[in-house]
């Protein structure tokens, strides 16, 4: 459905060349194509606008117009800029402390419970940890059962208390339980919530205050559209989270939300989720994400 940006630009430059002189005005036309491509990929409206302005200045600085293949060079510059914006290096989790505590947060259905399981699997198999999963979603029907099934799949104990309705109390008790039973990492699954739900946002801030986690991770669906910036910003204002997990990238979404989120909160995307299985978790690579956003 989406035409490759590079092909599109090459084509439009050919047309331009047919008209003789290539000017700054013409570049502005081509930047419209770049902008459109970003919008089709769900990059936020304002961010796409600022971004293309920056790329335009950079392109003019490099005298793109007099090169043999201006389209290719423009795409290259766009790609470089995107990659830089999304953070060039992969950032590791902070797993210091005994136990290290990871708090999961995000909208409904984004993939928190599944990714709690994936993280447990990762910590166990890649980091030599003994993790404990904690069921702090006391609302969603069968949320606790779901985490138990996930825990079983990854061979990790799950701490839950179906009698207790206060997630803060459950989480604190779980950390105590972890200390006494030799678990050196604790992963806290929480209920999905909307950023505008005051009570639920207070709840997750209280959880963070009570736990003082090493990592609070914002779990977000890669298919998210223009609203990604609002949500990422609101959660960040309340939680000042350490990083982001971008889920469901095994689909064919171009995932422009990645750029929007990074640009608006300046927090690293630490992992991407690429499936429903427990090993479908991989480190984030900005350059590959740029390929994807540009449809390459």
């Amino acid at each position: 459905m989406f035409e490759n940006l590079q092909d599109k630009l090459e084509r439009s430059f050919k047309v331009l060349k047919g008209h003789g002189q290539i000017t700054e005005v013409n570049v502005a036309e081509t930047m419209k194509e770049v902008r459109r491509s970003l919008l089709d990929a769900d990059v936020n409206f304002k961010i796409a606008k600022d971004f293309t302005n920056r790329v335009k200045d950079k392109a003019l600085g490099r005298d793109v117009l007099n090169t043999v293949s201006p389209g290719q060079l423009l795409v290259k510059i766009t790609h470089e800029e995107l990659t830089e914006l999304m953070g060039s290096e992969h950032e590791e989790l902070d797993l210091s402390g005994d136990p290290a505590v990871i708090l999961m947060a995000g909208l409904q259905g984004s993939g928190k419970t599944t990714h709690s399981g994936k993280l447990a699997h990762f910590l166990k198999n890649k980091k030599g940890k003994k993790p404990l999963l904690v069921a702090c979603d006391v609302y969603r029907p069968a949320a606790i059962d779901q985490l138990h099934v996930v825990g079983e799949q990854v061979g990790t104990e799950v701490y839950s208390n179906k009698e207790e309705k206060d997630p803060v109390k459950i989480a604190k008790d779980a950390v105590e339980y972890a200390k006494q039973n030799g678990f050196n990492a604790v992963i806290v699954d929480t209920a999905g919530r909307l950023a505008i739900d005051e009570d639920m946002m207070n709840e997750i801030s209280s959880l963070k205050d009570a736990l003082n986690p090493n990592e609070t991770l914002f779990v977000v669906d890669a298919m998210t559209g223009q609203d990604a910036v609002n949500t990422a910003k609101e959660f960040n204002q309340r939680l000042d989270y350490e990083g982001v997990i971008l889920t469901k990238l095994d689909g064919d979404t171009r995932g422009g939300a990645a750029l929007s989120i990074r640009a608006v909160v300046q927090k690293p995307i630490k992992f991407i989720g690429t499936g429903e299985k427990m090993d479908a978790l991989t480190p984030f690579h900005p350059s590959r994400m740029s390929d994807r956003i540009l449809g390459m």
Binding site: D42, M223, G225, D227, D252, T253, G256, A257
Partner: peptide
């Protein structure tokens, strides 16, 4: 369809 989904919903 989830209202927060972007252009991928078309596909």
């Amino acid at each position: 369809l989830d209202a927060s989904t972007g252009q991928n919903a078309i596909e």
